[in-house]
Amino acid sequence: MRDSVGTVRTVLLLGGRSEIGLAIVERLVREGAREVVLAARGGVAEPPGALTALGAKVHSLEFDATAPDTHTATVDAAVALVGDLDVVVDAFGVLGTQSDYEADPAAAARAAAVNYTGHVSAGLAVAARLREQGHGALVVLSSVAGVRVRRFNFVYGSAKAGLDGFAQGLADSLHGSGARVLVVRPGYVPTRMSAHVDPAPFPATPGRVAEAVSAGLRSGATTVWAPRVLAPVFAGMRLMPRPIWRRLGR
């Protein structure tokens, strides 16, 4: 339960090896969170030392984004470990390479399943629990890639567009339930996942994304951009004529 100064006690990270996800968890632990569940395929055998050094109790859980039938059970298992879920960070995903996807349509569909439909079942399973407990926040890692889908990464971007819309709708469905959804739209963040793509303007670090999430959770925001300047930048991008948009390299 969030306390009166905005500190939370328990955090569940779906995508337990996500660098951005872990940065968010670490930030919340620094602010006072005491119990963390890292959920990832195969579990997270060795929890990051930073979390335990900060005094958090870290649990590991099996979570398969591509097995929607198991998602409710995963949420129940997390509740069994730590009780009420104060914050759930939904951070799993794959980036991949657009040209590979175009060469292997089945691989593209599998990536889309992780990046979109996996979040549909996980998000609904989490939302059901938060509604039942009457409080809690779901942090959904969307991306600017989904704000307006670009030619150079439209498989990933379209899945993020779907996820972003899903998260907004989920947020509205939870209105008044005590639970809420925070949609996070980072720009280019250099991590292991994005190591193979060229840097883009206005980069953010995982730490900066975590800072934005923490501030958003405290203020009651529904959407945060990281860095913040991307909000006006993408407001402009949306208006860009299609012939120019199509030619954008990045």
């Binding site: 969030r2 306390d3 009166s4 905005g6 009457g134 339930s177 005590g178 639970a179």
Partner: peptide, 17 residues
Amino acid sequence: ERPVLLTGWGRTAPTAA
């Protein structure tokens, strides 16, 4: 049927019941 959001006098940390 609809839950109500409640806080204390400090108006922090609402939860539904």
